[in-house]
Computed example of a mutant assay.
Amino acid sequence: MPSQGLVLSAESARHLDWPGLAAGGLTLSLARTEAELAELQRLRLRIFSTDMGASFPEAEGDRDVDRFDPWCVHFVVRDMALNRVVGTYRVLTPEAAVSAGRYYSDAEFDLSPLAAYRSQMVEVGRSCIDAGYRHGTAIMLLWSGLAQFMMRGGYRYMVGCASVSLRDGGATVAEVWRKAAALMASRPEVPQVRPLHPYPVEHLDGFPATRLPPLIKGYLKLGCMICGAPAWDPDFHTADFPILLDLAWLDARYRHHFGMG
């Protein structure tokens, strides 16, 4: 078991020797203490409340807390000059998902079409970056770290939920759904999952074209696939799209950047 003060589960603690990364005055590391975990939980609540108008039934004071946090590996992007946490991702390994009872995404989607992937499939979630750091360096650090983490752990697949705010009445969800439907039609070999609480996509016709959210646009550039219709998350006031990545799908530019040849 991890030593006292560590926030990682026993299954996840074996990754503590992960070396971390640095770029542009930012560092990427793993959260190792309760204090670090609390910092990123405060960032999550602030960002999600501001950007999405999310409510947090399990919040503890100024922190976004849920039952999966203790089982996850938490990436932390820190501005070294200010000693301030400015970005985070959490990763649930397949081993930790067994101990936790399920993936977080299992509550939003029927993941049975991905059953053959589960032993090599990590789940990512709670992605957020401070508004002043959304110029590229922080997200590239997070993605580089995730790619290296997966390679070191022998994980081939990544799944997650990409949340789209409903503050605009569904216009952005409609744009993502148009893109997703076209992608899924062009890649019938990619498994598709079913939302357990579907967002009513049948009401999305008629919205004018708009921009894709930067995170989803970035996922698609990486080589990720949207693999199903969106689920409705009323607490976060979002429509959540299922994202799937096979490392074999990574765009060649990112494979080189991530040191994968």
Rank of each mutant, 00 (worst) to 15 (best):
A180I: 08
S163E: 05
D233P: 00
L212A: 09
R255K: 11
A181Y: 06
H256K: 11
G206T: 03
P214Q: 08
L212Q: 08
P191S: 03
H203Q: 15
F258N: 10
F241E: 00
A171S: 05
C161I: 14
F241K: 02
A231S: 15
K221F: 04
P214D: 10
D205G: 13
A171L: 01
D235W: 10
T172Q: 07
P191N: 06
V201W: 09
H197S: 15
P188S: 12
I216Y: 04
R255N: 06
A239W: 00
W177P: 10
R167W: 03
V173Q: 04
M184D: 09
H257C: 10
K221E: 11
G259K: 11
L220A: 10
D240W: 02
C224H: 03
R187D: 14
L183T: 13
S186F: 00
H257M: 13
Y254L: 04
Y219K: 03
E202H: 13
S186W: 07
V176C: 09
T210M: 06
G170T: 00
Y199Q: 01
D240E: 09
H256M: 14
E202D: 15
Y254I: 04
P198Q: 05
S165N: 07
G169E: 08
P200C: 05
K179T: 15
E189F: 06
A174S: 11
S165E: 13
W249F: 06
R178C: 05
L166Y: 01
R194V: 15
D235N: 15
G169R: 03
G169L: 04
I243P: 02
